[in-house]
């Protein structure tokens, strides 16, 4: 296990290093001045000479890269070309907002998707199975952006049940600290906390639900197929031969083994979720990383693009590696396949 751990960690480090290399190269590849691209300070600025010195503008590309790494580790990721805000602080603030809806959506997808998938498998080729499959197929086929807009049109505008966009009613004046609106309200302790939480909750329903649909439909299908596969395995039969009840066979043998296949796919599912989060953030004006990054791409805000890419890729990478390690730790035969021992 420790050998596998080391291998995964070294993979993580190498990939992260390649990512910094790519982000650094972007500074050169983008049109315009390298120093402006990475630091966000224009040549007209009085701080430009000082910045050029600090980022080793004249000292060759190797020194530039070392200087870039130094800035990266110190949290000096440059300023936004648009509004002069420091990129690192913006990322720290917006990351919470993104994480909030992505995480809640993911939890909903798991909590609903897995039981529905199991149900479909247990009622294989019966009405329940067909219904769940039909819903999941159509849910998976509908594009998120279209669905989001239809939902806004009907639920938010026509019926007026929930607000159209944003994180909370601006009247509550919550100062962003972590980016996550619920955490911020709890930290702020405003006068009308229950009402503020209620407002935040109403704002959140629509984006979170729409975000949860796609991964949920995928999890249903994955879980159903994997459960069908596991239920036909011999060790399920031997569970019944021991005289175990259906519930115990399902809980002790079928579910853990079926989850193994699903776990393997969850990494891919998370990158899909993050992509969808960006789209949802733009549509619902959610102040997260995604909407900010999309804006930066439209506006050629190079320091923001570099920083945002780095963070999002690093997050996906970290999750994938964490899942790999979990997978090897939890499932013994995977460990055996990986390096032929325990």
């Amino acid at each position: 296990m420790s050998r596998y751990l080391l291998r995964q960690l070294s993979l993580l480090l190498v990939t992260l290093w390649l990512l910094t290399l790519l982000a650094f190269s972007l500074g050169h590849w983008f049109s315009g001045d390298f120093i402006t691209n990475t630091s966000g300070i224009f040549p007209e600025d009085i701080r430009f000479a000082e910045t050029a010195e600090a980022r080793a503008a004249e000292a060759g590309i190797v020194n530039q890269y070392t200087a870039y790494l130094g800035h990266l580790f110190r949290g000096d990721w440059g300023l936004s070309l648009l509004d002069g805000e420091p990129v690192f602080e913006q990322i720290a603030l917006r990351f919470g907002a993104t994480l909030e809806i992505a995480l809640i959506a993911f939890v909903i997808a798991i909590v609903l998707g897995i039981p529905l998938g199991v149900l479909a498998a247990l009622y294989f080729r019966k009405a329940v199975d067909h219904t769940i499959l039909t819903i999941s197929l159509s849910g998976y086929s509908i594009p998120v952006f279209w669905f989001a807009q239809i939902a806004i049109l009907i639920i938010a505008i026509q019926w007026g049940l929930v607000p159209i966009a944003g994180q909370i009613n601006p009247l509550y004046e919550i100062t962003p600290r972590s980016g996550s609106i619920i955490l911020d309200i709890l930290l702020e302790q405003p006068e009308h906390m229950t009402e503020a939480l209620h407002s935040a909750f109403l704002h959140m329903i629509l984006p979170v639900c729409i975000l949860a649909i796609m991964p949920m439909m995928l999890i249903i299908r994955l879980m159903r197929n994997s459960m069908l596969d596991v239920l036909s395995q011999n060790y399920i039969t031997s569970g019944y031969a021991k005289g175990l009840s259906i519930a115990r066979v399902l809980w002790n043998h079928a579910l853990p083994n079926a989850m193994q296949h699903v776990m393997r796919q969850i990494g891919a599912l998370i990158s899909l979720l993050i992509t969808n989060t960006m789209i949802i953030e733009v549509i619902f004006s959610w102040p997260g990383l995604g909407s900010w990054l999309v804006r930066s791409i439209y506006e050629r805000d190079y320091p923001v693009i570099q920083g945002g890419l780095l963070v999002i890729s690093a997050v996906i990478l970290l999750i994938t590696i964490a899942l790999n390690i979990f997978h090897a730790w939890r499932y013994p035969q995977v460990r055996k396949d990986l390096y032929g021992a325990n």
Binding site: N234, G243, N257, Q260
Partner: peptide, 28 residues
């Protein structure tokens, strides 16, 4: 009934199989 069957299967009637390995749960 399922309950009556469980009182017999695994208690008074037991079974072993061909290819025993595949009848053991690989994760336990």
């Amino acid at each position: 009934t399922a309950k009556q069957r469980r009182a017999i299967i695994g208690v008074d009637i037991a079974m072993i199989f061909q290819d025993a390995k595949s009848y053991l749960d690989p994760n336990l």
